[in-house]
């Protein structure tokens, strides 16, 4: 198990970005790291990935195969995305044909737009991010580290990313990811840490959603002309919300069952009318193959 013991980090003589961090990444868990911009999330992930050395303290128990997806994927290369993945696959010990098959399969699954032979530098940010994600899972890693993986990805890729995280956890691997939105981390993680002023604290969760338990599905509507118009609420920022979609003037919100009452309270206070509340029929995170916009 990957462990950080009393790890501190500062760049040069500056302030401590991380301060005496003790943390463990248990197997078969998906760990969210929360924190504001510049709080040290990326530095913590870089230390976990072995890319950055801590100034003090010790990192132990790193597994042999680590997948790392940085928060941005600088793309200056004339190399095509498939060719890049084949190279990465070979570095991971795959044979060329095997690496090609796996690369193609991943890019198809993530629905890369722009062509698998197009130079990476010609791809859009979201599509380059898909290449970045694919390289990390050419061989299913024992530890998958993702820095803000949802940013820039489209709704379909969100679903695939959720499946990938599940796959890694299901085979006993660990996932560590950051996101600044609590709703996302709530829906995809089983453990959470928060970084505040360099200290990393375990977050007490509102009863983590057990595997296989369906999410709640809430349909909210405008109460109509007789009532005052409902207030504008950014549903994605409400605790426990995993997905939001707008269908025929109604707002469909998918929410962690434990956070459902809180969501209803927020909605009613905001002047919204609750049209429907139900458990999703399927256990899948985003339910029924629908594509949810985050």
């Amino acid at each position: 198990m990957l462990r950080l013991a009393d790890v501190s980090k500062r760049y040069g003589p500056g302030h401590w970005v991380l301060d005496r961090v003790d943390m463990q990444i248990p197997p078969a868990q998906s760990v969210a790291v929360l924190g504001t911009n510049g709080s040290g999330k990326s530095t913590l992930l870089r230390i976990l990935a072995g890319v950055t050395r801590p100034t003090r303290g010790r990192v132990s128990g790193a597994p042999p195969v680590i997948g790392y997806v940085p928060d941005r994927f600088p793309a200056f290369d004339a190399m095509g995305s498939l060719a890049y993945l084949v190279h990465i696959g070979r570095m991971r010990g795959l044979r060329t044909a095997e690496a090609r098959r796996r690369g193609q399969q991943l890019l198809e699954r993530l629905q890369l737009v722009g062509g698998i032979r197009t130079p990476i530098r010609a791809l859009s940010k979201g599509n380059a991010q898909k290449v970045a994600l694919s390289q990390a899972i050419m061989v299913l890693p024992q530890l998958l580290i993702l820095d803000e993986p949802w940013s820039g990805l489209d709704a379909n890729a969100h679903d695939v990313l959720a499946e990938i995280l599940d796959e890694v956890v299901r085979v006993g691997g660990s996932v560590v990811f950051t996101d600044h939105r609590e709703s996302i981390s709530g829906a995809y993680s089983t453990l959470a840490y928060r970084i505040e002023e360099g200290r990393v604290l375990a977050v007490e969760r509102v009863a983590p959603r057990p595997r296989g338990v369906p999410m709640a599905h809430v349909v909210l509507a405008d109460p109509g002309a007789e009532c005052p118009p409902p207030s504008r609420i950014d549903w994605r920022e409400v605790a426990g919300v995993a997905g939001v979609r707008s269908i025929d003037e109604a707002i469909h919100v998918q929410v962690h069952p434990a956070a459902c009452d809180g969501l209803l309270m927020t909605a009613l206070r905001g002047g919204w009318s609750v049209a429907e509340v139900r458990r999703d029929r399927e256990a899948g995170r985003l339910g029924g193959g629908d594509s949810w916009a985050h």
């Binding site: 890319v51 680590i66 990390a136």
Partner: peptide
Amino acid sequence: VRRSIQSVTA
């Protein structure tokens, strides 16, 4: 950043 990906992979 890309070099860091290469070094994690390698």
